[in-house]
């Protein structure tokens, strides 16, 4: 339903989301109207340096280096064939980011005040080049790529989101992991002053939020660190300024607002697994055959899902990325290592 105005000149019809299955006639007409609108737009849109290129998506307030990186970005480096991109409004107003509150609308309402510039990330553990790096320095050597990925939440809803980022593996290689680096551990910012959820006395989470990956998962080319989405800088509620995206795993693995990346020898502590080990595992691979104890994982609601036209579809093994990642888990009992 979204239409990209490409950063430089192209605006061909393949840019428009295809006649996707669930689009109602009215929505389709709406998209058509938007296309007419966009034909009149390019001159105006290009005049603004950091225009997102997505219809109706404001560029946000990015730091100077971000606009520069955007110029050299590889657009549509990966796409999802035949599926519509979730509207930006939904992707940025329906979030699980418990640091900002337990309800889906809380992050959008409460995350605006989080300072994301300057931002530093500590890289430590089994690496040759540990240190405290500014985000700008971390991103500088990499080309931003637009990766359009399915995002499947463990709560059985899903979206399709165009991320802007770079492979985590490229960053890890620069840090020169030693032979002791078997896992990667990530940590979110701890900042109760700006994160009301961390102040809640009835919260069940032991802050800061922590996540982890096995080394081969981290090095898989699908795994990225994102700094933007929808052609713009990440909104705070989506994990600004730096978040993990692992498209074949449930969304909670995609840790947000990262301040620390450690390479470690043992399987690291991860937040949800620790809170409810019978419900959330370390691996958390999208798997329609292994149900969450409280609900089925066989199907998902692709958002937006209308009241009387529920957009329910079957969940795919590894969220549809089996060709790329199934080999990582060969011989493992995925019902045991869920």
């Amino acid at each position: 339903m979204l239409i990209r105005i490409p950063p430089r000149s192209r605006c061909d019809s393949s840019e428009i989301t295809p006649e996707s299955v669930y689009l109602s006639r009215r929505r389709f007409m709406g998209a058509g109207a938007a296309l007419l609108g966009s034909a009149a737009l390019p001159v105006w849109a290009q005049a603004q340096a950091p225009a997102s290129g997505y219809e109706g998506v404001e560029p946000g307030n990015p730091p100077g280096w971000f606009a520069q990186k955007l110029d050299g970005a590889r657009w549509k480096a990966m796409e999802v064939a035949g599926e519509s991109i979730t509207p930006f409004q939904d992707a940025s107003h329906y979030n699980n980011f418990y640091e900002f509150g337990p309800d889906k609308g809380d992050p959008a309402a409460n995350a605006g005040g989080l300072p994301t510039e300057p931002w530093t990330v500590k890289i430590d553990g089994a690496v040759g080049k540990p240190g405290q790096y500014s985000l700008e320095d971390l991103v500088q050597p990499h080309t931003l790529e637009e990766r359009i990925y399915r995002m499947r939440c463990v709560e059985a809803w899903s979206m399709v989101i165009p991320w802007l980022g770079f492979p985590l593996g490229d960053l890890l290689k620069r840090a020169e992991p030693s032979s002791k680096a078997k896992y990667v551990s990530f940590e979110t910012l701890s900042d109760p002053e700006h994160m009301p959820g961390q102040k809640s006395r009835f919260g069940l989470i032991d802050w800061p939020y922590r996540e982890g990956l096995r080394m081969d998962e981290a090095m898989n080319p699908l795994t990225i660190l994102a700094v933007g989405m929808y052609g713009r800088v990440l909104p705070n509620q989506n994990g600004a300024p730096l978040r993990l995206v692992v498209p074949w795993k449930y969304g909670f693995k995609g840790i947000k607002s990262i301040v620390r990346i450690s390479l470690v020898e043992e399987q690291p502590y991860t937040t949800w697994q620790n809170l409810a080990p019978n419900e959330y595992g370390f691996y958390a691979n999208v798997n329609p055959q292994v149900d969450h104890p409280r609900w089925t994982q066989a199907r998902e609601r692709r958002l937006p899902s209308g009241l009387f036209s529920p957009n329910v579809r079957d969940t795919l093994m590894f969220n549809g990325y089996g060709d790329e990642v199934a080999s990582l888990y060969q011989g493992m009992d995925l019902a045991k290592y869920y």
């Binding site: 509207p87 939904d90 329906y94 889906k104 609601r301 958002l303 899902s305 209308g306 009241l307």
Partner: peptide, 15 residues
């Protein structure tokens, strides 16, 4: 509200 899209992308769940 649900019919007029005022409850977000997953109105059934909110209801």
């Amino acid at each position: 509200q649900a019919l007029s899209n005022a409850l977000g992308p997953d109105p059934g769940k909110v209801l």
